[in-house]
Amino acid sequence: MTTKATIEEKLTRAFSPTELGVIDESDRHAGHSGWKEGGETHFRIEVVSKAFAGKSRVEAHRMVNEVLAEELNNGVHALAIKTRAE
């Protein structure tokens, strides 16, 4: 399973989103810190879920980071996160 697919699966399980976008932007970071051949190091994530209702932006981002902690510790260098409550 690709890192992108793993991220999609974990976010879907954790937040039951009504909208989910996971974009691998690694190609835009070639040669930068954390980049590796083959990509899957830099992602842009957009999640819309009821789980974020009443949460601050920081709280929602922390929720996403917690769900993806394993990926962040094993090859994912950067996440650009956009969350929104349904």
Rank of each mutant, 00 (worst) to 15 (best):
R57E: 10
W35P: 08
G38H: 09
E66S: 12
F15N: 12
N65R: 12
E40R: 03
V76W: 05
L68D: 03
E46I: 13
G54V: 12
E8M: 10
T3A: 10
E66K: 13
S33L: 14
H32Q: 15
A53P: 05
P17Y: 11
L20N: 08
G21D: 10
A85P: 01
R84T: 12
T83Y: 02
G39R: 04
R44W: 00
L72C: 04
A14D: 06
G54C: 12
A80N: 01
G39S: 10
N74R: 07
D27G: 09
V58G: 03
E66Y: 02
V58E: 10
G34S: 09
K10V: 01
A53M: 11
M63E: 15
M1F: 11
V58H: 08
I81W: 00
S26G: 12
T6M: 05
V22W: 06
A14G: 10
L72V: 03
S26D: 07
S56V: 07
E25W: 00
E71A: 08
I23T: 14
E66I: 00
F15K: 11
T83N: 03
H42E: 01
H29G: 08
A53D: 15
G21N: 12
A69M: 08
K55N: 11
L11R: 09
I7P: 05
E9K: 15
S49L: 05
F15V: 09
R84A: 15
D27E: 10
V48H: 14
T83A: 01
H32D: 13
E19P: 00
N74Y: 09
T6N: 15
H77F: 07
K55Q: 14
K36C: 05
R62V: 03
G31L: 13
E19L: 15
E71L: 07
E8F: 08
E40D: 12
K55L: 15
M63Q: 13
V67K: 04
V58L: 15
